[in-house]
C-alpha cells in the first residue's frame, strides 16, 4: 500500500502522519507537495492536520485550490481512498468531498486533550467489531465544530456515514463537557456516501506509540489501509 501524505504550507502533522502510515506498519509512503499536480502511483491519500495557509479566510478554504487538490479530487472520484485528519478534514469539507462544514468551537477555545470516541457502525471497515466500542484519541483544534443542516444529518445517519461520536456518558451536563467543540450530534468523524473519503477531527497518528496518550490510533489507521486495499469506493 503506497501512501501519499500531502504537505500544504502550514501543515504541521505531516511528519506524524508519515510516521504513522510508513514507519509503524512498515509500508511505503511519501510526501507530496501541494504544488505537485500528480499523486503518482499513490494508493492511499492522507491530508494531514495543521494550519494550511495560516487558516486564512476559513480553515482549509485556500488549500482547496492548491494544484494537488485537482488530483486528489480525481483520485477520490475514481474510488481512491482519502483520509483527512483535523485540518485535512476541513480541507475535504471545503473541497466538497465531504458534506458539512467545521466552524469555531462552541467554547471559543482551542481544545487540546484526549477524548473518548464511540465507534459507530459505518460500513465494512469502521465498525465496533473491527475497532472495538471505544477509542481514546487526542484532539487539538479550534475549529472542529461540525455543522450540517437537518436533511444532511438525516442522510449521514441513514447511510451509516458517521464514523465516530464524542462519547457521551452520564447526565446532559457531563455530556456537554465530553463534546470538545459543540459538534452537532457529537460527530467526530464521517465518511462520504460512497465509502472512500474519510474525515475526522481526532488525530489517530498521535496515538500509535507507547509514549502517546494511547495506541488506539493503530486500529483506525488499519481500517483506512484495509479500505484502500479492498478498493472501498471502486466500482460502487
Amino acid at each position: 500500500m503506497k501512501t501519499a501524505v500531502i504537505q500544504f504550507p502550514g501543515s504541521n502533522c505531516d511528519q506524524d502522519a508519515f510516521h504513522a502510515f510508513a514507519t509503524v506498519p512498515g509500508l511505503p509512503a511519501r510526501m507530496v507537495w501541494h504544488k505537485d499536480e500528480s499523486l503518482g502511483d499513490a494508493e492511499l491519500v492522507v491530508l494531514p492536520g495543521g494550519f494550511s495557509f495560516g487558516d486564512y479566510l476559513r480553515c482549509g478554504a485556500i488549500a482547496r485550490f492548491s494544484p494537488i487538490m485537482r488530483a486528489v479530487t480525481g483520485f477520490a472520484e475514481n474510488g481512491g481512498v482519502v483520509l483527512g485528519i483535523c485540518n485535512g478534514f476541513q480541507v475535504l469539507c471545503e473541497a466538497g468531498l465531504l458534506p458539512g462544514a467545521l466552524i469555531r468551537n462552541e467554547c471559543l477555545e482551542f481544545r487540546c486533550t484526549t477524548v473518548e470516541l464511540r465507534v459507530e457502525e459505518a460500513g465494512p471497515f469502521f465498525n465496533r467489531e473491527k475497532l472495538g466500542e471505544r477509542l481514546m484519541i487526542p484532539v487539538a483544534h479550534g475549529e472542529g465544530n461540525y455543522l450540517i443542516d437537518g436533511e444532511g444529518l438525516d442522510s449521514l445517519r441513514k447511510n451509516g456515514q458517521i464514523l465516530f461520536r464524542y462519547a457521551a456518558r452520564g447526565s446532559a451536563a457531563d455530556r456537554r463537557l465530553e463534546n470538545p467543540n459543540g459538534s452537532v450530534d457529537n460527530i467526530a468523524g464521517i465518511r462520504n456516501r460512497r465509502g472512500n473519503v474519510f474525515g475526522m477531527m481526532p488525530h489517530p497518528e498521535r496515538a500509535v506509540e507507547s509514549f502517546h496518550p494511547s495506541r488506539d490510533g493503530i486500529p483506525v489507521l488499519k481500517a483506512v489501509l484495509e479500505a484502500a486495499k479492498s478498493g472501498a469506493g471502486v466500482g460502487v
Partner: peptide, 13 residues
C-alpha cells in the same frame, strides 16, 4: 455573515 440558523459562537461571546 454566518447564516441565520448557524450558531455563531463569536457573536454570542
Amino acid at each position: 455573515t454566518p447564516k441565520k440558523n448557524v450558531l455563531d459562537p463569536q457573536g454570542a461571546a
